[in-house]
Amino acid sequence: MTAESKPGVGLFVTCLADLFRPTVAFAAARLLRAAGCTVTVPPAQSCCGQPAYNSGDARGARRIAKRVVEVFSPYDFTVAPSGSCAAIIREHYPALLGDDPGLREKSQRLARRTYELTTFLADVRNFTAVDAAFNCTATYHDSCAGLRECGIHRQPRRLLQQVRGLTLREMADSDVCCGFGGTFCVKYPDISARMAGDKAHAIAQSGADAVLGGDLGCLLNIAGRIKRGGGGARVFHVAEVLAGMKGAAIGEGEGEGGGAK
């Protein structure tokens, strides 16, 4: 990579953005281009293997990890609009594939070059050209894997400060789990509901009218809980806001002002 040539980013879409909210991935691509990168979306991607890995299916996880390493190795960087998917690739693939002599080096190399979107923009690209407006008081939920395994905390906040009209207001316990936890939320729905309820309460208490985060799993959980009667805050992925691409909030129908059932 020469000084003039643009770094090539392979966009790891994440299965949840692919299925539930393509806008998040379109927003990520737009931001990466604005940050001077060329963006490629390898079509042979699906999932990072997290459901298998965290449910104890090491073999399934290893097979998926192997595929991801092969598909994403050609790019200068791999970027995902999700802290937990980035964390799996960065922190867990090397151990998962460590016994495979053909993949050990490759997985370590991929791990070093994989980033969550806001950390890549803020830390690697020093991106300061956010061009977006959103009149709101927003609060930020720190998703667990992103916070504790990728060190994501100040990066999204720093980027959001550049959004015109947006005021950040911290909620209590922003770093406490929302109760999503992948398959946890359907395996132990009672505990999960309780944790999601606590999170919705903290959001409502903060007085913010929008809640933002970097992981769609958590955001679907939080939005679903708020819709079921946990306040009126609207939920968006941070990428949508930064790219100025926010349409209807998560869980809100087209043309719905929010809250309709």
């Binding site: 692919d18 393509p22 359907v186 939005a223 819709k227 079921r228 909030a249 869980g251 309709a260």
Partner: peptide
């Protein structure tokens, strides 16, 4: 609607929260 209160096989999810509806087609 932007969210469902019930969906087959999603009982663990919808028991205590709505299921946000996907936008439509996949990103890819």
């Amino acid at each position: 609607r932007g969210a469902l209160r019930k969906f087959p096989l999603a009982g663990g999810w919808t028991q205590s929260r709505d299921l946000p509806v996907p936008e439509g087609k996949t990103f890819l």
